[in-house]
Simulated scan of single mutants.
Amino acid sequence: MAPPQSPGAGAVSEAALPSSSSAATASTSTATALPTNYLPPIVKNDPARTGFDPQTKWWVNYFKILAGQVTPEGQFHYREWRTTANEAADCKRCEDWRDFALQHSPTVRFLREKIEALNGRLDKDNVICRRCPARLTEDGEVHRQSGGFSPDHGILICANEVRDRTHLEDTMAHEMVHAWDHLRWKMDWTGDKDLKHAACTEIRASMLSGECRWARESITRGNWTLTQQFQDCVRTRAVISVMARPRCKDDVQAVKVVNQVWDSCFSDTRPFDEVYR
Rank of each mutant, 00 (worst) to 15 (best):
H153Y: 13
Q145L: 11
M176W: 11
A199C: 09
L183T: 12
K193F: 00
H167P: 07
A198I: 06
V177F: 07
I203E: 08
G148I: 02
L168E: 04
Q145H: 09
I155V: 11
L168A: 06
W185K: 02
K186A: 12
M187W: 00
G147R: 00
A198T: 09
I155H: 02
M172T: 10
D188N: 00
L183Q: 14
T137S: 13
D188A: 00
R144S: 15
D125L: 05
H178R: 06
A198L: 10
A134E: 14
D181A: 12
R131N: 12
A179W: 00
D181M: 10
A199W: 06
I203C: 11
I155S: 04
E169R: 10
G154P: 01
E202R: 14
G191E: 02
M172Y: 08
S150G: 03
D181T: 06
T171D: 06
R184M: 09
D139P: 08
H167R: 07
P151M: 00
I157E: 01
W189D: 01
D181H: 10
W189T: 01
G147H: 03
A199Y: 04
E175S: 02
P133I: 11
H174N: 11
T201G: 10
D170H: 15
D125S: 11
P151V: 00
G148P: 03
A134H: 13
A134K: 15
K196E: 10
D164I: 12
H167L: 06
W180H: 09
T201L: 13
G140E: 06
C132T: 14
V162A: 08
L183W: 07
R163Q: 15
E141L: 15
E141I: 15
H197M: 08
E169P: 07
D164Q: 13
T137D: 14
H182N: 13
